[in-house]
Design a protein around this nucleic acid. Structure first.
Length: 460
RNA sequence: GGCCUGGUAGCCAAGCGGAAAGGCAGCGGUCUGCAAAACCGCUAUGCGCCGGUUCAAAUCCGGCCCAGGCCUCCA
């Protein structure tokens, strides 16, 4: 039984999809005005884990990730550079797609761009106008919060606590109520669309309502994002969508905590951020970055340090070295206890992740299996078939974790010859020569390990 | 000010009422020609602090301290 912590109810709940075996999943995507930093990627890695795990548990997942390619920052950016909005946002969208691949983030089924869904937003706004949930003021259109009494149910915010003039933009005085938010902003020059509801551009929140319902239906299963999206973004999405359809918008809201640097939120405005590319330039392995981001529970704040990244890197190296070591088994005789240990690990992995994606629990089961199998390997009692079973189990769970280096490692004939030559030298007690060969191969990234059962190699 | 997180070994991190998982690092040992890897052992009488409830508390309750987030840009 899968359970998720639902921000809407503030409880862990059993996950029951609307349609059996199917999941409609909407994950908030990037605003493509700049490179995403690894704090942003924490959310996307969490969403990736969720996506992959649901599939591992045999759900047919339909996932949407929106691309916000029109807002104040993208408009400012393209105007500053004197290029079109499209040209400007394409640049960062492509960079984002590249980064996604680097971090092994599974591609969502749909990645709709806001600018390609203006008509969908317009028709949603028209509906809200017809139903009296929206009103025009000058050329702009606002959502009428006074018409939607359940506003605040997601974030628990008390509207009377929001003081006009404090954090609320005071020059928006033309609204009926300062707390009303924009659905459509009038714009006569620069970036605008000519539509039935006027000339202008959409507010930020409306795109997610329009695009999620377009691809997933008026009610769907899961909506995710960072905790900073709870208010106002997701709260507003609920208001717009439920006002328009009269139906419950989303059943499960999942939010991930922030990535911190020196115990402060990593953010563009604080300047305390690393992009993925910054870290790659420093020589870090992207898979170690993925592992670091994935290995802390998504609802706990994660304090990012290079030290913890180095630790993650060691873990990944050991994990993959174990995977490679499975190639070097000679024994034929099966040992039933290996099969049992795999099954125990599988069950532990599942029950961990079933519990609101408790990754630490899931991983500890995997490491326990590795320890057990390592004992068999060093005793020389692991059979080829058992090793293959372990290997395919690691590959099975890698559909969720995506941290394995599955590239087939091969040696050239020359390298194989050198290993044989070294073994002969060792037999002849010519250790100087043996050590020389070991050193040469090491410089080529091939590490030799002498075991009682022969020399084993691994390639970095 | 309101609302919400988190504080567990040197570092990261589970556990959330009944003997403190796991990872990284360190030390000692086994193995090895030497290494490496792996394994074994050691490393929190203790879970921010102070009280309380209970046969039993890291886990529940109350108070306090520290750090962080949200309160119309934000993953």
């Amino acid at each position: 039984m899968i359970k998720f912590y639902n921000t809407l109810t503030k409880r862990k709940e059993e996950f029951k999809p609307i349609k059996e075996g199917m999941v409609g999943l909407y994950t908030c995507g990037p605003t493509v005005y700049d490179l995403a930093h690894i704090g942003n990627f924490r959310a996307y890695v969490f969403e990736d884990l969720l996506h992959r795990y649901l599939e591992y548990r045999n759900f047919k997942v339909i996932r949407v990730m929106n691309i916000t390619d029109v807002d104040d920052k993208t408009i400012k950016g393209c105007q500053r550079e004197g290029i079109s909005l499209r040209e400007y946002t394409d640049r960062y969208l492509f960079a984002f797609m590249e980064d996604m691949e680097t971090l092994r983030l599974k591609k969502p089924d749909y990645m709709p761009r806001a600018t390609e869904h203006i008509p969908d937003m317009v028709s949603l706004i028209k509906k809200l106008l017809q139903k009296g949930y929206a009103y025009r003021k000058d050329g702009s259109i606002y959502f009428r919060l006074s018409k939607f009494p359940s506003y605040g149910k997601l974030s628990g915010i008390d509207l009377s606590q929001i003081k006009p003039g404090a954090r609320v933009d005071v020059d928006e005085y033309e609204k009926e109520d300062v707390r009303d938010f924009a659905l459509w902003k009038e714009e006569k020059e620069g970036v605008f669309w000519d539509t039935e509801i006027g000339r202008g551009r959409p507010g930020w929140h409306i795109e997610c309502s329009a695009m999620s319902m377009k691809y997933l239906g008026e009610s769907f299963d899961i909506h995710t994002g960072g905790v900073d999206n709870i208010f106002p973004h997701h709260e507003n999405e609920i208001a717009q969508s439920e006002a328009a359809t009269g139906k419950k918008f989303v059943n499960y809201w999942l939010h991930c905590a922030h990535l911190l640097v020196n115990n402060e939120k990593m953010s563009k405005s604080k300047g305390n951020f690393y992009t993925l590319r910054d870290l790659l330039k420093k020589g870090y392995n992207p898979i170690s970055i993925r592992y670091l981001l994935i290995s802390t529970h998504y609802r706990d704040p994660l304090n990012f340090t290079e030290k913890s990244l180095i630790q993650a890197d060691s873990t990944i190296k050991n994990y993959n070295a174990f995977y490679q070591a499975l190639e070097f088994c000679k024994r034929e005789k099966r040992d039933k206890s290996v099969k049992d240990a795999i099954e125990k690990a599988r069950q532990g992995f599942i029950s961990g992740l079933d519990d609101d994606l408790n990754i630490s629990l899931a991983l500890s089961e995997i490491f326990n299996l590795i320890k057990k199998v390592n004992i068999s390997i060093s005793e020389g009692s692991l059979s080829i078939v058992d090793a293959l079973d372990v290997k395919s189990f690691l590959e099975e769970i890698d559909s969720v974790l995506a941290i394995l280096d599955k590239e087939k490692k091969e040696l050239t004939e020359e390298e194989k010859g050198m290993i044989k030559e070294r073994e002969k030298a060792r037999k002849d007690k010519n250790f100087t020569k043996a050590d020389e060969i070991r050193e040469i191969l090491k410089n080529k990234g091939i590490i030799l390990e002498d075991t009682p059962y022969g020399t084993r190699w691994k390639k970095l």
